[in-house]
Design a protein around this nucleic acid. Structure first.
Lengths: 263, 263
DNA sequence: TGTGTCAAGTCCTATATAGGATTTTCGCAT
DNA sequence: ATGCGAAAATCCTATATAGGACTTGACACA
């Protein structure tokens, strides 16, 4: 290629990003670092544009993309706000439980079985990228709509969430981890990677769920990601089969107004 | 409200849509009606803008949203094209099969077991909104990576796809329905609704898959939607458990460059 | 024949600007 | 106090315009 020769010496292989992208990332970083907290109102778009040396149109485009990511919300005539845990309630569950008619089932009760700290390695340590790290490991029984129960285990990096290990079990009981992590640790779950398989339930789980040993069920793995896809939770949920057809439906990842601009 | 009183009489409760949305829909309609076919190149953006009486910026915004929907593709310096089946290959599978290491498994072989026409009602007729309609009903064995097999049944509305019923089984053997419907019937699957459950496999399925009767497996329902969420396929897939941990991973609905503008 | 250059076609980014729509605030008259 | 109405703050849509970047194909030249 001739052009390669003609290029200036500063050939940063990174193909310079568009301004609206850089702005979008800059704002994301600020939120990620907690300089703006969930619920906070951002400066007005024209003010932001001026501050960051961009035109209004460019700033609007950057903000639109943040809206799509679920990081901020904009309200006509009111302002732009950092999304809180509440806002994400309906978002980003790739799956959710559903009854036969199509009505939605919600996890209503979380009962802690035990909390321990471990440095055991496994898929979770791979997910967190810290093979020798310490993890908080929590077993829970989750009741869905008071109708049936699933067994859940969660791994969290111990260093980042050390405060959590010291919370009493009674404090943790009954709360949604996702909400708690978003509210108390500025670690909202913005995206997930999930896998699912049909396997015999482990003996311990079968015992807890009160099903026969060797019973098949669904094993559902959920990796929770936050800003910039930083890993925050590794979770495995064991779902026993039930004859009242309980289903799991996928929800699109950005929860979103799919194709919001298309109406 | 004062303003309500001052409003003109033509109070169409439909809150007038934005121009870029109307344009986006207009183009979508044209594609939907086959006035532009998959692979076709659309006029240049400035030309389109002129034709439809919009500014360049507005047209670009409309086109961006169509890109996000997966309806068209734009290539810098080349043009804007209606997405074909090929383009959707990586898109919109909420789930896909995956081996333990994370490598992807692809359905490689489709073997037709039988094709029949039925007016039986069921969840499919509800999905299509035609309780008394006729449906083409096809049973297939699908081989994934030559490693394991799943059993699949598909329902299609007979009126729309009558040509299909007349195709010979040998023609249908081995093809992906999604690709075939997109290419031959201008009915690309742009979105899906899926549910999953862990249940005993029906006797017939267990026999076909060569697993013990009563064996638990995953029952996976996929409703395929096309332009404007028009229903096109109702499919149910029966997956036997396997000890080589076969998993199913969700893929975000628009397949996309999730948060494409954020980098 | 192969090669390099140039031009046309196309999409992409960005700006400045104007006006409209929605929500909140606040002062003022009752 | 209460309610009304104007003003301010904010987001939303749309336009016109300028220049840059990528792709393709034609044409001249070796």
């Amino acid at each position: 290629m001739k052009k390669a020769i003609l290029r200036p010496v500063s050939n940063d292989s990174v193909p310079t990003k568009a301004k609206h992208q850089r702005i979008s990332e800059e704002i994301l970083t600020a939120i990620e670092e907690g300089r703006w907290l969930p619920g906070d109102q951002l400066p007005a778009e024209d003010q932001l544009a001026a501050e960051m040396g961009a035109s209004l149109g460019t700033m609007q485009r950057a903000l639109r993309s943040l809206v799509q990511m679920g990081v901020v919300e904009r309200h006509h005539g009111r302002g732009t706000f950092v999304s809180g845990a509440r806002a994400q309630e309906t978002q980003l569950r790739h799956f959710r439980f559903m009854a036969e008619g199509g009505t939605r089932l919600l996890p209503v009760f979380f009962k802690i079985i035990d909390v321990e700290t471990t440095s055991e390695s496994g898929p979770w340590s791979q997910f967190f990228g810290t093979p020798d790290g310490e993890f908080i490991h929590i077993h829970r029984l989750v009741s869905v709509n008071d109708e049936f129960e699933v067994f859940s285990e969660i791994y969290l990096p111990a260093d980042r969430f050390s405060d959590l290990a010291q919370m009493s079990e009674t404090t943790l009981n009954g709360v949604s981890f996702r909400d708690m992590l978003a509210e108390r640790f500025n670690a909202p779950t913005l995206n997930t990677r999930q896998t699912m398989a049909c396997q015999p339930l482990p003996p311990r789980v079968a015992r807890q769920l009160d099903v026969p040993p060797g019973q098949y069920g669904m094993v559902w793995t959920i990796c929770g990601l936050s800003y910039r896809d930083a890993p925050i939770t590794w979770q495995r949920i064991f779902v026993p089969p039930s004859d009242r057809v309980i289903e799991i439906v996928p929800v699109s990842s950005n929860g979103h107004p799919d194709f919001s601009e298309a109406g």
